[in-house]
């Protein structure tokens, strides 16, 4: 499997993510993207480095196993199916996502990055995934979808990290993974609390907390 194929798949996932209104499906897509993230370094032929191999396996385990588990638990508790009333509609989101991807292609060309062995689409895909994550975070109301956005955002950063994967110390990568884990964990607690307090997972209610 060529890495470019996987990267293209990632970008496709991005589009599907912004277009879907079903929370359950968004989560499945995020998990799928997470597994892709784990596979990309292997497809790039980096599996010969032990620590990268290990890291990929851990990433797959966390993103494909543990995080979905947390999600399912949260879903069970809050009983939500759909994102009913996003700040930005699905069509507009799709267009914004497309614009973001386009911008990433332009930016990726202009960015002063190390040229060479990396797959052609890696940098644009990283930026596009980043933007998609942000888009989800900004435009959705339900806390669960926002967590999905956070995951996607992190995937973007992860892709970016692959550029430097051979020089980057293990410490930093594990740090990112840990960060992700803690992030989801905390969000889970927050979701629970929002739900308990406002009987909804609409983060808009949080505005009541400002002074």
């Amino acid at each position: 499997m060529s890495p470019d194929f996987l990267i293209a798949l990632t970008m496709l996932t991005n589009f599907t993510l912004v277009a879907t209104s079903r929370v359950n499906k968004a989560i499945q897509l995020a998990v799928f993207q997470g597994i892709l993230m784990g596979l990309i370094p292997l497809a790039m032929g980096l599996g010969k480095h032990t620590h990268i191999l290990l890291l990929a396996l851990v990433a797959i385990a966390v993103k494909g196993g543990f995080i979905p588990y947390l999600f399912r638990r949260a879903l069970r508790q809050v009983k939500i199916r759909r994102e009913v009333d996003p700040y930005v509609g699905y069509t507009v989101s799709l267009m914004l996502c497309a614009a973001g991807t386009g911008l990433s292609l332009v930016l990726a060309h202009a960015l002063p990055l190390k040229a060479g062995t990396t797959p052609t689409f890696l940098v644009p895909a990283a930026l596009a995934t980043l933007f998609t994550g942000f888009l989800l975070l900004v435009s959705r109301r339900t806390a669960l979808t926002q967590v999905v956005g956070y995951l996607v955002l992190e995937n973007g950063i992860y892709l970016f990290g692959l550029l430097l994967v051979e020089e980057m110390p293990v410490l930093v990568e594990t740090g990112i993974l840990l960060d992700l884990f803690v992030g989801v964990f905390v969000m889970g607690i927050v979701i629970n609390h929002i739900h308990m307090t406002f009987d909804s997972t609409d983060t808009g209610f949080l505005a009541e907390l400002k002074d």
């Binding site: 900004v138 435009s139 983060t203 505005a207 400002k210």
Partner: peptide, 12 residues
């Protein structure tokens, strides 16, 4: 504003 998405928009 107190709206989480708006803060994230600032970051973006």
């Amino acid at each position: 504003t107190g709206q989480l998405p708006v803060y994230l928009l600032y970051v973006l």
